[in-house]
């Protein structure tokens, strides 16, 4: 039982995926949710630039954070120049 079984010749030697990376929803990793205060946001786009998950979308004024992908890493919270992004616990509200 613990031995690996022999494989047929021609078994693929790499594994590739034809599924879109868009399916890889990482939002469920998050336990803190970044919330932008639209009143104080200057539209500087530092959050868009720094987001390691590239899940901040450009809009006319206040950027939109896509919560299905946001891992809750907090980089935007840390970097926002006017400090208008705040972490809130997921279960709040």
């Amino acid at each position: 039982m613990p031995r690996l079984e022999d494989e047929a010749p021609g078994t693929p030697n790499v594994i590739v995926s034809d599924r879109s990376m868009a399916e890889n929803l990482t939002g469920n990793w998050r336990n803190l949710r970044p919330i932008i205060d639209p009143a104080r946001c200057t539209g500087c786009l530092i959050c868009w630039k720094f987001c390691p998950e590239a899940c901040v979308e450009l809009t006319q004024k206040v950027p939109l954070i896509h919560m299905e992908y946001c891992k809750g890493c907090g980089v935007c919270v840390e970097e926002c120049p006017p400090a208008c992004i705040e972490f809130q616990p997921e279960d709040a509200s």
Binding site: V14, I15, V16, S17, D18, R19, S20, M21
Partner: peptide, 9 residues
């Protein structure tokens, strides 16, 4: 025909 190579295994 997009494919992802070498991703998490």
């Amino acid at each position: 025909r997009p494919l992802a190579f070498g991703s998490l295994t």
